[in-house]
Design a protein around this nucleic acid. Structure first.
Lengths: 201, 201
DNA sequence: CTTATCTTGGAACGACTGGTCCAAGTTTAT
DNA sequence: ATAAACTTGGACCAGTCGTTCCAAGATAAG
């Protein structure tokens, strides 16, 4: 008997996601979402409960559709160190070039938005997911004898996870992909087994 | 002939700095500053021009009084790698313990506040100042033969600067000082010259 | 003390905030 | 066609935003 929703909730979340991502939550009003989606306030409040629900929904969507695929790709890439390098250079590229350049990462950005309990849980799970993926790749690299002996893989994964967050952060201030890329190289190359000599100046 | 100001501008900036730092700019209203300082709107607008002026003033104050002393201490510490370790562990401690625990860093936080041109300039100068200090300490470490040969000091300084920003960011989500500390160790220990064997598990 | 100049408190501004509400419209099952 | 269940548009709410303005107060030079 009931009427049925006249829109796709996920599509609306996708639009809200872009707004929150680019402008931040505090700077994005419900009115912005109304204008961008063409829906009315009623429909939004009926479907998502309010701004917080909209934000948490967008956050989940971001993690599921944008972060997790990257994590999975990294965790399943069996090449070891090159997989990690690829991950980071892809990350730098997304953050500094193309449509999303200078937007940072919605989850990293959330750290500054005085997140509620529910949102904070997403942050922690995002961090845990990234760390697990990095650690998996490091363990592959260790099996391939690419790493210096004696490395604490868990701590190193923590370290590289932080590096990713920093890239997200600094990209919002317009950091150049070149600088970020050299920093990534500086972070990764000391992890590798000693080679004859790094021909760099 | 003129009347004279009835308050210390720097003291007011100090109070505004704490508000912006803890709650973020967007979440802090002029009303909050009025309440915290006991001044009236007129005095604030007369002295600082508006919210943006207040924020930029607070940002400058933060850099001068909080960041730069840390940078100088690091740059002038002639111990090399231990100086860098000290800097990071002190940073983790400030971010995770005591009055400012969970506040992050006002400048790091600014990355998410859609900073104006003037504010953005402060961010870049902050980054440059930190990188210069880290690089100076690395050069000292190199002179003391503490570093692996072939290290790109500039790129490594860039890398460690990013690590500091990430610590600031994650501390706002309540990251534990233990995790951050082990990440710091994981970042620094591969930079050191090879020792017999790292007795760690 | 007068006077010119600046500061200060506090009221007021319009614009906008997130959120609520209800009548009207739409859909589905009977 | 009827009726129940739900969605939708749009007006509306009180509250807050950053900002402006002006009369009253404070100050220092003459």
């Amino acid at each position: 008997m009931p009427d049925v929703k006249h829109f796709e909730p996920d599509g609306v979340l996708g639009i809200a996601e872009l707004l929150f991502w680019r402008q931040g939550v505090a700077a994005t009003g419900i009115q912005d979402v109304v204008a961008a989606t063409g829906l009315s306030r009623s429909s939004l409040y009926n479907a998502f409960g309010g701004k917080e629900g909209l934000y948490v929904g967008a956050l989940h969507r971001y993690v599921e559709q944008r972060s997790k695929p990257m994590f999975a790709r990294l965790a399943e890439d069996r090449r070891g160190l090159p997989a990690i390098e690829d991950f980071f250079h892809r990350l730098v590229s997304v953050r500094c070039r193309g449509k999303f350049a200078g937007w940072g990462c919605l989850v990293s950005n959330a750290h500054l938005e005085n997140p509620s309990g529910e949102a904070k849980a997403v942050l922690d799970s995002h961090q845990a997911g990234l760390k697990a993926a990095v650690q998996a790749a490091l363990e592959t690299a260790a099996e391939l004898k690419q790493l210096r002996p004696g490395l604490d893989l868990s701590a190193t994964a923590e370290h590289l996870t932080l590096l990713a967050y920093a890239i997200n952060l600094r990209s919002r201030a317009g950091a150049s992909p070149r600088h970020l890329g050299t920093a990534v190289t500086a972070a990764l190359s000391p992890l590798a087994r000693d080679r004859p000599s790094p021909r760099k100046a």
